[in-house]
Structure formats: structure tokens, C-alpha cells
């Protein structure tokens, strides 16, 4: 017989893990689905200086490992399967994975966001061959080599700073003439002798023989094309929500972020959203964790009302 879970949580990043801790601690029968790695983006972020309480030696992997252990301690079950679809019409909600169909009273969507790609020739071909979206995963390969970081926001600058521990030269390529990253990160970047900047420029093409060797860049003000030799291209030009499979089922904004009220309720009763996949001002571990906690409590209330 199929188990009827109280709470089906889709996504194992900080939002999903926090929801799992609160839900399973409240004795809800809880399961977390994660297709690749527990921890989401936090698992591939090296330094985490701004999560309250995390100071010395706080790295993303360490924080999420503890979150997972905490959820497991309270009884959360983890399933490493990829979600193919959901059925949210009836009182019993369904989550269909590549292997099974799971049933639950509530669903918490915590699928997060993913890196936007450049969409230029050579990008796809050189993924794993010099094009990367994860400095903590791949920085080792570029020890004493030259890399380009594309972007000017917090994550671009943070990853560029991380890469200076390995690479010989880090060039930040940004389409504007100033950075968007916070002041503290900007100061660190401007002071770092390994970091150079190319302003007002975008990548047109990535080229190489089997591995990345150079990029063609275009100055957006003059239209001038230039060739820059490099061994790696790290892309951090922004995020998009991982919500494609919920399209037309749940209300979203024009960018695909899920709309909720302040209690994380979507327009569908019994379906909640938490973390980076949700339309909101600030997408950080601290806000993801807060969303998850609220979603779990809202799910618990919903179940109580359903059963009385």
C-alpha cells in the first residue's frame, strides 16, 4: 500500500531542510526529494559569513550537512529521485518521480534557483572543459592558470575572490561600468592584486581545442570585438527559479518565481513554496531557512484544519 505522507518537500536546499526540521519535529511524516545533492546552492558555497551564528570555519557544506542530520534526527526521510511532475488537484497531492508516485497531504516546493547561462556559442560544448558555474567544485583545476569570471553581482565577486586562492589571474568581465555586488565584497575585490576588470563587455563566443583556450568579447559601448586568452570561464550572471514543471499549475510572476502569501501559501490549498523559488526581495540562506520554517508550520495548520 502506498504511504500517505503528511508533507512532501521538493528540494533539499536550506529551505527544504528547514521545512523538514520543523515538520518532522512536529511529528509530521515527512519526506524530502532531492535529485542531485542535498544542500542546494549552499552546498557549493565556500565561505558563508552572513548566516547568523556562522562565523569561524563556516562553510556551506558544513552548514547543510548539519541541517540534514538535524532533519534526519527528527525522522525526515530523504529520497534521491528526480521529480517529473505533481498532481495537486485533489485533497491528496501526488509527486511523481522517475521511479514512483508518492502521495501526501501537503507539498512544500523548495526547488530553489539555478544559474542563468550565457547562451553563446561554445558554452554548452565546454561545460566541464573550462566553462563552470561552480567555483568550489572546479577551482582546483585552475591552480596557476588564468580564468575569467562573468558577472558583477554578489555571487560573481564572491566566487572571483575564492578563485584567487587557486588561479594565477582572475579577470572579472562585466557588462556595465560598475559592480552591483555589495560594498564589502567590492572593497575586497578592488584590493585583491590577482583580480583585474574588463568593463562594459560581454562574452560573444568561447573557443578552444577540446578545452577552453580563449573567449571573444564585445565592448557594449563601442561594439569592438577582442580576443582574450583564458583557461576557464566562470559564469555568474544571475539566477532563474527552478519552477518549469509547476508552470500553469501554480501562480507565478513573469520570471517564474512562485507567488505566495506571507505564510508561504500558494494559490493552491495545501501547496506551499519556500526559499529561492519564491517571489521575494532577498534570497539568502537565512531567508530560505525562515521560509521553510513558516511553510512547515502553515502545512501543519492546514492538515489540522483538514482533519477536524
Amino acid at each position: 500500500m502506498t504511504t500517505l505522507y503528511d508533507c512532501l518537500i521538493i528540494g533539499g536546499g536550506p529551505a527544504g531542510l528547514s521545512a523538514a526540521i520543523y515538520a518532522s519535529r512536529a511529528k509530521l511524516n515527512t519526506v524530502v526529494f532531492e535529485k542531485s545533492k542535498i544542500g542546494g546552492q549552499a552546498a557549493i558555497t565556500d565561505d558563508i559569513e552572513n548566516y547568523p551564528g556562522s562565523m569561524e570555519e563556516a562553510t556551506g557544506p558544513k552548514i547543510v550537512k548539519r541541517m540534514r542530520e538535524q532533519a534526519e534526527f527528527f525522522g525526515t526521510q530523504f529520497i534521491m529521485e528526480e521529480i517529473r511532475g505533481i498532481d495537486i488537484n485533489g485533497k491528496i497531492k501526488k509527486v511523481v518521480t522517475n521511479r514512483w508516485c508518492y502521495e501526501g497531504k501537503t507539498i512544500i516546493i523548495a526547488t530553489g534557483a539555478e544559474h542563468i547561462r550565457l547562451n553563446v556559442p561554445g558554452e554548452k560544448e565546454f561545460i566541464g572543459k573550462g566553462v563552470s558555474y561552480c567555483a568550489t567544485c572546479d577551482a582546483d583545476f585552475f591552480t596557476d592558470l588564468d580564468v575569467i569570471v562573468v558577472g558583477g553581482g554578489d555571487s560573481a565577486i564572491q566566487e572571483a575572490l575564492y578563485l584567487t586562492k587557486f588561479a594565477e589571474n582572475v579577470t572579472i568581465l562585466h557588462r556595465r561600468d560598475k559592480l552591483r555586488a555589495n560594498k564589502c565584497l567590492q572593497d575586497k575585490a578592488f584590493k585583491n592584486p590577482k583580480i583585474k576588470f574588463i568593463w562594459n563587455s560581454v562574452v560573444e563566443k568561447i573557443e578552444g581545442d577540446g578545452i577552453v583556450e580563449k573567449v571573444i568579447i564585445r565592448n557594449v559601448k563601442t561594439g569592438e570585438l577582442n580576443e582574450v586568452k583564458t583557461d576557464g570561464v566562470f559564469v555568474f550572471i544571475g539566477m532563474k527559479p527552478t519552477t518549469e514543471i509547476f508552470k500553469d499549475l501554480i501562480d507565478m510572476d513573469e520570471k517564474g518565481y512562485i507567488l505566495t502569501d506571507e505564510n508561504m501559501r500558494t494559490n493552491v490549498p495545501g501547496v506551499f513554496a519556500a526559499g529561492d523559488c519564491r517571489a521575494k526581495l532577498l534570497r539568502q540562506i537565512v531567508t530560505a531557512a525562515a521560509d521553510g520554517a513558516i511553510a512547515a508550520v502553515a502545512a501543519e495548520r492546514y492538515i489540522e484544519e483538514l482533519e477536524c
Binding site: 572543459k129 573550462g130 583545476f141 577540446g210 577552453v212
Partner: peptide, 13 residues
């Protein structure tokens, strides 16, 4: 095995 990886054209995990 960084050099071996680069010779096998692997630069990402």
C-alpha cells in the same frame, strides 16, 4: 591528478 585530468580534457566535476 590535476595534470592527468587536463590531459584527458576534464576541467569540471
Amino acid at each position: 591528478n590535476r595534470r592527468l585530468c587536463i590531459s584527458l580534457k576534464v576541467l569540471g566535476l
